[in-house]
Amino acid sequence: MAPTDTTLPDLALSRSSLDRVALERRRPEVLTELLDDPRTRVAEVRGDRMRVAAADDDVLHLVLRAPEPEDHTRLGLHLGRDGEGTAYVGVVTQWDDPEPGGDGPDPADDGWLTLRQAGEALATRDAGVFTTALALANWHGTHRFCPRCGAPTQPTQAGWVRRCEREGSEHYPRTDPAVIMSVVDPDGRLLLGRGAHWPEGRFSVLAGFVEPGESFEAAVAREVAEEVGVAVDGARYLGNQPWPFPSSVMIGFEATTRQTELTIDPVEMAEARWVSREEYRDLLRSGAIRTPSGISIAKRIIEHWLGQTVESVIEPGDSMRPGTARAL
């Protein structure tokens, strides 16, 4: 699917500038060498958080450090090299202090933020580092045992493969594709849905996982038919972004339909509704509807249909796009 004039640029989690140097990962000693090199930049993942700081350019940057001896005992992830050849390694640790809401300090007070909190305002390189490191950390956390025989697996190839200790089979990071789509009727109205377990006022465009043997376009048609009983006429590609919560990639589309009568699946949907652009603006201004988060492609798909940013509706004259710390 080639980019077109209608594709969505600069999606928050699709930004990356590192060369992943896949061939370099094959050397068994590569992580040891990198963690012995003080020039290596280490990006520490604690739980689902990384440490960030704001710079003079009003953009968030990851707080990177030199390797320390303890990194050799931690899960290491060779994330790639920048244009100057500097290597970036993710290391995965856990929290020593209680989580927010417990008896200890809130990690956010010391700059430790989740990707949902920081992703929209991160610099390009750091958005790619955080997204990749989190996706790999999530995969390692749930694939410690071989799916073929149940024996323990160990990380290899610089954190990009796990190998079964018993039979030697290799297992690779999993990414689950999901489609997400606007559906527009002949009057230009957008279809919005509220998930069965979502709070009042939270609406988004429809989405769902791609099934085995299914194309992306077929998944769009099936998901819309299943969730709201509407047949779409076709689907046009808009863009895609990784979504490491825990291991997806979201493929965005815009679809049209001539049907407007909705038959809602109560298992999946609490409610669904058609809205015109003016109705959506009024709902935003009144606070009666909440838009998806800034890092989500869902928000960008809605803005693509709306013809302006959500922020410029709520605060006229504000055309803010992802990439500034104020967007958090």
Rank of each mutant, 00 (worst) to 15 (best):
R148C: 07
R163C: 00
P199W: 15
A235H: 08
F145W: 10
P199Y: 15
G195P: 04
R148S: 12
Q157L: 02
V161Q: 14
G188M: 01
T175G: 08
C146D: 11
R189H: 06
V228S: 05
L191I: 10
V184D: 00
A158H: 06
E223A: 12
A235T: 02
R236F: 15
A235V: 01
D176Y: 00
V183M: 01
W160K: 01
F216N: 05
F209A: 15
C164I: 06
F145E: 10
E165Q: 15
D185S: 06
V184C: 03
L190M: 12
R194C: 05
G234R: 04
P246S: 02
F216P: 03
V205F: 13
R166A: 15
C149A: 09
V232K: 11
E223S: 11
R236N: 10
R166F: 08
A158Q: 06
G193L: 11
V179W: 03
G193Q: 11
L192V: 10
P199E: 05
M250D: 09
R162E: 04
D185H: 06
G239Y: 05
Y172W: 14
P177F: 08
H143V: 02
R174C: 02
W243S: 14
V220S: 04
P199C: 15
A218N: 13
C149S: 08
T175V: 15
G150L: 01
L191T: 05
P244I: 10
C146W: 05
Q241K: 09
M250C: 08
L206T: 08
R166M: 02
D185G: 04
G201S: 11
T153M: 14
L190I: 08
R189F: 09
A231M: 09
E226Q: 13
P212W: 09
Y172E: 05
D233W: 06
S169Y: 14
V230A: 07
W198I: 07
C149P: 13
G188S: 01
P173I: 07
E165C: 12
A151L: 01
S248P: 00
D187S: 10
G195D: 11
P242I: 10
G150V: 03
V179S: 04
F203K: 00
W198E: 10
I180R: 05
A151T: 02
R236D: 12
V249C: 02
A158Y: 04
V228N: 03
N240R: 13
L206M: 09
R148A: 15
D176N: 00
V230D: 02
G159L: 06
V161Y: 09
A218R: 11
L192R: 02
R148F: 11
V232T: 13
H171G: 00
V179C: 04
V205E: 01
V210Q: 12
I251H: 13
G159E: 12
Y172G: 09
R222Y: 13
A151R: 02
R194Y: 01
V232E: 11
T153R: 01
